[in-house]
Design a protein around this nucleic acid. Structure first.
Lengths: 232, 232
DNA sequence: ACCTGAACACCGTTCAAGT
DNA sequence: ACCTGAACACCGTTCAAGT
């Protein structure tokens, strides 16, 4: 029984890069209950697992293409007409949303460059925001990188976390309520005093603090520049 | 030929958790040229690969123990007597240094909790810093989490990056000089205008911006509180 | 031109057998 | 009480063979 393929699309077997990317996203959307492997991909496509090597050099090239498709989903969710701060907030929130939708992709992509069209669009969006904030030249480049790398790191971290096996996650989550509540108050006074508050912090609030810290840093840098920085 | 084990410590084979952790750190310190696998660990110890299961439940439990040992190295590098800002800077710089020393460990630990002694000490250090900055209660807990998660995300991202195969890294690094220089200036004016500056941003400068943004956020939050926040 | 399937060189982990 | 080694259920990828 247990071996019948999910979708039997054999014989014809007309594969294409698009079909493979879409199948990858379907698998990635299943989160921790379905690993994103070449063999699983073959099953999902109703083809031999190695058939994808006819359309992508290796799994890494496929991954970058899939990630760029996910970037496209992020961009679709960002409305027009926002000021630079709200544009960055929309980018951050959208990135987190899409990363949690496809955690297997987001967790691997966190330190990668897709060098594809939607990444270009996101780079342009961030550059536009820091420029609108009043930065230019080396400053704009530096703060662009800080924002881009930080966002990738944040959402990649969140994605990796939801991918952990449930037992591991349960252990990590309960640690504030267990191990951290049993520390010696003499040796760890801060932990003992703030144990309750530490257990109650929400991931959303932490994410907000981190995003707002970046926005404030851009604003502070722009404010520290000489007035004549009103570029043409 | 090619099969002689690196260190033959057989027959006696007196393994211990400490010896296994130290062998793990030696392997992890070899970075991308030597994967941190159970089989490699057996070779390093001059024992059968599966012998470690007599001392650790599974690879994950070993990893957390190894990570906590690495946290100890971070703490050793932080001098006494620093103010809260310099303490956080020393923690950030030390974390990055140790993460790049043992990238295989740091890249996996970025979204984990070791629940071991040195993690407690780092939590206490950060809590002490935000308290000294003037935060308390839910605020202290929230900004603790923002700092801790951000640091883990930053150094984990950096560690994952140096672990990539050289070809992949070369492709990512050259992208600013190649793909990003060939974009259509009409469609991506920001990229076209700042291409040179983007290629020149250093990873250290980006890291600094991110760390200083966190410190400034703590300071701003503390400054926004009513005066009477001079706790007992 | 594209797909198949056996095969290779890897993983982490279990378990019966040794000492 | 601890270590060994065969074995299992996985990985990504190559390549000769099919159509």
């Amino acid at each position: 029984m247990a071996k019948t393929p999910v979708r039997t699309r054999r014989s014809g077997s007309q594969l294409s890069p698009e079909a493979i990317i879409e199948a990858s996203l379907r698998i990635a959307a299943r989160g921790s209950q379905d690993a994103f492997t070449v063999r699983r991909l073959g099953e999902e496509l109703g083809a031999d697992p190695t058939a994808i090597y006819r359309h992508f050099r290796d799994k890494d090239e496929l991954l970058l293409s899939v990630a760029d498709r996910a970037y496209g989903e992020v961009l679709e969710g960002i409305p027009d007409g926002l000021g630079w701060k709200d544009r960055l907030r929309a980018l951050a929130n959208g990135s987190l949303r899409v990363a949690l939708k496809y955690p297997a992709v987001a967790s691997i992509t966190a330190s990668r460059t897709t060098r594809r069209i939607n990444e270009f669009r996101i780079v342009e969006l961030i550059l536009g925001a820091v420029t609108e904030a009043g930065l230019d030249g080396a400053d704009a480049a530096l703060y662009y990188r800080a924002v881009a790398d930080a966002l990738l790191a944040y959402v990649g971290q969140s994605a990796a976390y939801v991918l952990f096996a449930p037992e591991i996650r349960a252990g990590d989550e309960s640690s504030w309520a267990r191990e951290y509540r049993m520390v010696d108050p003499g040796r760890f006074p801060g932990i003992a005093r703030l144990g309750t508050e530490l257990a109650q912090v929400s991931a959303e609030a932490v994410f907000d603090v981190r995003v707002e810290a970046l926005i404030a840093a851009i604003e502070a840098r722009a404010a520290s520049l000489p007035e004549d920085a009103t570029r043409t």
